[in-house]
């Protein structure tokens, strides 16, 4: 059994990123889209941690970045959910195709 190396982890994060992207493009429900977005953010986080551990174990920049991203993502989720709630109040739906007034 080979030890877990950088390529394995990068494979995982790439898979996670594209699953999130696929979800973001295809789902119509705004909450699901938000979840997909979180998936993509987390794949980035994994990348940061992995590069930090395997390439530059002597410093902790990657880890700090991850903490920042988690914090920002939490705030962003709060804002996004607030938007979604307002959208639901005004149009009785959280379907993204129902909210396309902002066009030409």
């Amino acid at each position: 059994m080979t030890p877990v190396g950088l390529p394995h982890i990068l494979l995982l994060s790439t898979a996670l990123f594209f699953i999130g992207m696929f979800g973001f493009f295809t789902r119509r429900n705004l909450i699901t889209m938000l979840m997909s977005l979180e998936l993509m953010l987390n794949s980035v986080n994994i990348n940061f941690v992995a590069f930090n551990k395997y390439l530059y174990p002597q410093n902790l920049s990657g880890v700090f970045f991850v903490i920042f991203i988690i914090t920002i993502a939490a705030a962003e989720a709060a804002v996004a959910i607030a938007i979604i709630i307002n959208l639901f109040r005004s149009s009785d739906s959280i379907d993204v195709t129902d909210a396309e007034e902002m066009k030409f």
Partner: peptide
């Protein structure tokens, strides 16, 4: 060219990617 500005969030995300 105004069709590009469709108001569909996912279409915009596609352009972005």
């Amino acid at each position: 060219i105004k069709g590009i500005q469709s108001g569909k969030v996912q279409a915009y995300a596609m352009y972005f990617f």
